[in-house]
């Protein structure tokens, strides 16, 4: 090989290596900067920061529990609504529908994921919130009002609406991954089941069983998205740092407290408190996403699935 070839190869490879290393560097610096900037509150409040229920920036009282609670509950509502629907869509698209109608439907479901978060928020404020106030909330109050979940002041802006909007947003994501996972289940499995006399639905159940860890991965991935979703939730959840059993009441999530307050936080301790909750969200979503990836890989091993991320 000519001399320019080997020198060129080395230079080229080093340049590519640097670009790849930049990705690792970004994450490393990200963790460093966030830990550094949240040191004031970590020092002052320690672990109590995460369990404190009072959030009064003016009095320098910072307890993040209402935000952690709001984040978890709104994400759970989203999963409860979204998982069955996503599974249904994926089963329909992969196992039942003829390709001719499955392709356009799959594309339209994917388009739901292309709509920006702030647009869901706008739609949430002016369409979904009135719907919850006038119809859905009234219905739940009438039939399930004996549960503390569905009592209280019904304004349409609150935890329930936040959870519903999250459900709409994560449905295309969960659906896409579950579709991938189903398609990774070998056709021979379906043929074997059918040959043994199983009905179509029984065959689908076998596919579901084989894909179960991948489905779990899809759900965890959806959870990761729901935990960190910001704009739409901020616009409809009511932004009030309280812990209430009622889903009609306003709440606050970690992401929404950041979106609503970060620009105004000039006081050093206040800023540190916000960065620390950001750090908590960062670490939680990092672990959740890593877990999702491992679960999905266990089914789709060797098949690229980055296109759905």
């Amino acid at each position: 090989m000519s001399q320019t070839g080997t020198v060129g190869d080395k230079v080229f490879r080093v340049i590519l290596f640097i670009t790849a290393a930049i990705i690792l560097l970004i994450v490393a610096v990200m963790i460093f900067m966030m830990v550094l900037n949240s040191m004031p509150t970590i020092r002052q409040f320690g672990f109590g920061f995460l369990t404190g229920r009072e959030w009064k920036p003016a009095l320098s009282e910072f307890g993040a529990l209402p935000f952690i609670y709001g984040t978890i509950v709104s994400s759970l509502i989203a999963l409860i609504i979204s998982v069955p629907i996503s599974l249904g869509i994926a089963i329909f698209l992969v196992e039942q529908a003829p390709k001719k109608i499955a392709t356009p439907i799959a594309f339209m479901v994917e388009l739901l994921a292309a709509i920006p978060s702030v647009v869901y928020g706008l739609w949430g404020i002016f369409v979904l919130a009135p719907f919850v106030r006038n119809y859905l909330g009234v219905f739940l109050e009438n039939y399930l009002g004996w549960l503390p979940l569905f009592q209280g002041r019904l304004t349409g802006i609150g935890m329930l609406t936040g959870g519903i909007i999250l459900a709409l947003m994560i449905t295309p994501i969960i659906t896409a991954v579950v579709r991938d996972v189903f398609e990774a289940v070998p056709t021979t499995q379906r043929e074997a089941a059918l040959a043994l006399g199983a009905t179509k639905w029984e065959t689908t159940q076998i596919v579901l069983g084989n894909a179960s860890s991948g489905i779990a991965g899809a759900v965890v991935l959806g959870l990761g998205r729901a935990l960190g979703e910001t704009m739409a939730v901020t616009m409809v959840i009511g932004n009030s740092p309280q812990i209430s059993a009622s889903l009609f009441e306003p709440a606050y999530t970690i992401a929404s407290v950041l979106a609503a307050n970060f620009a105004e936080a000039t006081d050093r301790l206040y800023l540190s408190a916000l960065i620390e909750i950001g750090l908590v969200l960062f670490l939680v979503t990092f672990v959740v996403n890593a877990l999702a990836k491992l679960l999905i890989l266990s089914v789709t091993r060797g098949r690229a699935s980055a296109k759905h991320t």
Binding site: I26, M30, M34, G228, F282, N289, A292
Partner: peptide
């Protein structure tokens, strides 16, 4: 892959 899944608001804080 994990960076893709990190909430974009965290990137803003960073």
């Amino acid at each position: 892959d994990t960076l893709i899944g990190i909430p974009s608001i965290i990137i803003g804080i960073f």
